[in-house]
């Protein structure tokens, strides 16, 4: 039995899942195919419906 978790994909969903797991004290391996995490949300300027900054 192993208590670690792997998260595949470093977009907004992967980052959120990783942070939640890590805050619960679980060791997380966050795997992303691109050179940086951030995913599509990093490409967005602002988000609806509040026009807040995406990054």
């Amino acid at each position: 039995m192993n208590n670690d978790v792997m998260v595949l994909g470093g977009g907004i969903a992967g980052i959120q899942a990783s942070l939640d797991l890590a805050e619960m004290g679980i060791q997380v391996y966050l795997v992303e195919t691109l050179p940086c995490i951030g995913g599509k949300m990093a490409q967005l300027d602002k988000t609806f419906p509040t026009n807040d900054c995406a990054i």
């Binding site: 997380v28 966050l30 992303e32």
Partner: peptide, 16 residues
Amino acid sequence: MLDAGRHSKINLLAYS
């Protein structure tokens, strides 16, 4: 994003 890169419990494997 920055938090995920810094968290001691997150092992970041980018470009993988």
